[in-house]
Design a protein around this nucleic acid. Sequence first.
DNA 1: CCGGGTAACATTTTT
DNA 2: TGTTACCCGG
Length: 712
Amino acid sequence: MDISRLIDPLNEPQREAVCTDSQHTLVLAGAGSGKTRVLTHRIVYLIETGQASSFGVLAVTFTNKAAKEMRSRIDTLMEQPPRGMWVGTFHSLAHRLLKTHYKEANLPEQFQVLDSDDQLRMVKRIIKDLNLDDTKWPPKSAQWFINGKKDEGKRFKHIPASNDFHEQGLLKVYEQYELICQQTGVVDFGELLLRAHELWLNNPKVLEHYQDRFRHILVDEYQDINSIQYAWLRVLCGEKAHLMVVGDDDQSIYGWRGAKVENILRYSEDFKNVATIKLEQNYRSSGHILKAANAVIGNNSGRLGKELWTDDEDGKQIRLYAAYNEHDEARFIAEDMEGLLESYNEMAILYRSNAQSRVMEEHLIRLSIPYRIYGGHRFYDRLEIKNAMCYLRMLLNRHDDTAMERIINLPVRGIGNKSIDTMRIFARDQNISFWQAASQIVEHKILPSRACNAIESFITLINDIDSQTGDLNLTDVTDLVIKQSNLIAHHQKEKGEKGRTRVENLKELVSAAASFNNESDNSDLSEFVSQASLDAGDNQADTHEQAVSLMTLHSAKGLEFDRVYLVGLEEQLFPHKMSMDDPDGLQEERRLCYVGITRARKHLCLSYAESRSLYGSSQFNASSRFIREIPNEHIQEIRLKSQITRPVMYTETPKEIMNDSGFQLGQDVNHPVFGKGVILSCEGIGSNARVEVKFAKSTKWLMLQFAKLEAL
DNA sequence: CCGGGTAACATTTTT
DNA sequence: TGTTACCCGG
């Protein structure tokens, strides 16, 4: 077998990693050093040299996207697509295991996955049922508590009773929550991992089977692994498996949700015979950018220590723009992009928090620059989609209370809150499911006849749909559901753009079902519903359209662009005020900055605003310490064009700077419609001259030739 | 059932 | 400041 095509394109450390004989391997892969390449080549290498069969390979990632990417890259490397190989996220693998061994895991065959939305509803209800004050125990934080515990691998029974009154409440919620999940046969994300781990521990035979099978286990993004994922992996590996983990301690940015960098730092202690390989040659960014990244991350302590280098030239210096407010910042970027011939697809604006995107949008729209915001709600999280999915869930399992509660009066069929309350209490007292409660209430006419009729119509509806689905395929079932349930009609009645998009989304769901049917050759409804909760539902519908990408630094991890604008580099914002006082928090912020810088291939532009209005009030923050951590020789400061002034609060008397608008920054003006305002900025010449004015209720850009502005 | 008014809220996010 | 969730009145 000729493996030169696998080996030849690699550099020395990459090759070492791909060909290692070591049982355990830690690959420290810096940003842009080719880690996915190492992982995929390694897998194909193992198979083609006969060291592993494809059945014996397990590769774990964090996101579905990464799993998909890995799969397709392996497929292109291999002469024939490998069979029986497991590639997936921790969650999807756990789900698969639990589906197969549902009995051993003490789950119903048709158990469903509870997404965070459903989870929150459930927690809310429990808090209410327990008569807990939801101001003292906000559902969100109870949810956070539960998930945190599960990420640590702790069930209610593992947690010692607490003296703290507040924690006692949380524990009660947790206890009740576990109970209800078990009763209704639903499993949340953390539970998937927890159960999968317990499956190993409680069923030695099952464990043994998988230990025998998976002799080669590979894990991507190892720095992001949490306690329960680690535990699961540790048990599966046992003594025999070969474990290769790939990660970068400098890119650990999910500590706040349970990821433990310690796992990567401790790897050589936890496993024996570890070969450590560092990938430090970077193939992505030019010199200045890389050196800046090294300098910044160099301020962190406790690193495993890597220093990226490149064969590439220094390239362009990093530009630094000092804006005087967030509008100036956004305007500068939009104008900077406007004249470029590069493709918009190769540009990104990265920010620390989502709230920053709006101003950017405004200015991009103004210059008609197409953009796409990442990290919105996932397709399957949209209201109308969730509703439709709940109908599907009801077909699978009538006792899915969460689903039923959501759709029993949707579209409206005259079952009011009072009736639902009665049903809920009835169900709880009798210890039966919502569905059973509904049937009995109808049967014994416990509610007024109008309500009973309505409830009965719901029961009939579900049964009717169910009886029609007999030999239909998945696509047709979905289509049937959205029509028969009247969801389409319901949203069609909604006026405005909203209703239209909702109807479109519902139709999109039918095509999603169709493609699930085709791609995975699977028409199992249950699988489809599970996949929906485990999959983000690919947000990137129109990737082909040219557009600038806007996203948070977190969601930028793993991506790269020719031209990156890293904005809002101000103390309090980045590093964020919630994290900066804690040393670990600050280090994580710095890693985030490192991630941001290393996203850029050729151009990086940093910016900060001297004044930023956030949540109503203006803040005057110092520029971020991260800027100062970059040596000067890599930075080129950009000064403003002559007609625009620097800082100066608008409330103060502005400097004597005139521009083509004839107005001064900070000047008070009056507008016939909007009333009194203050000039924030001016731009354009002659008939294009326009000013930005802050009025009492809004801030607007006005064309001077049209707006009848009066100086005060 | 809708719509308006208003109080509370506002890192980061995948599964 | 802008959004959103929730409450009350019509």
